[in-house]
């Protein structure tokens, strides 16, 4: 997979820092930017991108980071993946840190307080919208709806940890898939 083009590590870092700095909302929003930045430089080809996206989605973690690991690794191996990942998170890391420090000093300001009173309900619908979009894509059978509803109830109302649910469903899904393959 690695092509060892000898792209300098600092260049990998800066290109991914640029991608990281201009992606607001994360995930899918960064795909067009990644495409523009990486294929312009010949780092990945256009027909590779769907594969990379699919793989990055199926691995645990955040897609943006996974794409950086994948592309960085392709360019310069392990070092490349470290450079790309650090690059893609550095801008947001610094911005968040600045806000966190600023916010602790200003959160008792009445204007900030009122603004956040208005923002909080909005945040909940911002979580609900992608959830419904995901449901329409991945819940197409009755058992998929049952899994979704069941895990919602377990976590929200019975205080079960999501991690246990994910482990259980992976074991269940794996066993059923094995069984189906054998038949």
């Amino acid at each position: 997979m690695t092509m060892e083009k000898n792209v300098p590590l600092w260049q990998i870092f800066t290109v991914f820092a640029k991608i990281g700095a201009f992606t607001i909302g994360g995930g899918y929003a960064m795909i067009p930017i990644i495409q523009a930045e990486l294929s312009k430089r010949g780092w990945i080809s256009d027909d590779e991108l769907p594969d990379i996206v699919a793989l990055s989605q199926s691995a645990p973690g955040v897609m943006a980071v996974n794409i950086s690991i994948f592309a960085g690794n392709k360019l310069r191996g392990f070092k490349g993946s470290v450079a790309a990942t650090l690059g893609s998170i550095t801008p947001s890391f610094l911005i968040i840190l600045a806000i966190a420090m600023f916010f602790t000093a200003f959160k008792d300001n009445p204007w900030v307080e009122r603004a956040f009173k208005g923002i909080r309900p909005v945040v909940i619908s911002l979580i609900a919208v992608p959830m419904i979009n995901m449901a329409r894509k991945s819940c197409k059978t009755w058992w998929a709806w049952l899994l979704a509803a069941g895990s919602l109830i377990l976590v929200a109302f019975l205080n079960v940890s999501p991690i246990y649910i994910i482990i259980c469903v992976m074991v269940l899904g794996f066993s059923i898939s094995c069984y189906r393959l054998k038949r």
Partner: peptide
């Protein structure tokens, strides 16, 4: 295929 619907439920939660 089994994990994805659960993820939907977790986000809902």
């Amino acid at each position: 295929r089994f994990v994805k619907p659960v993820v939907v439920g977790l986000i809902g939660a």
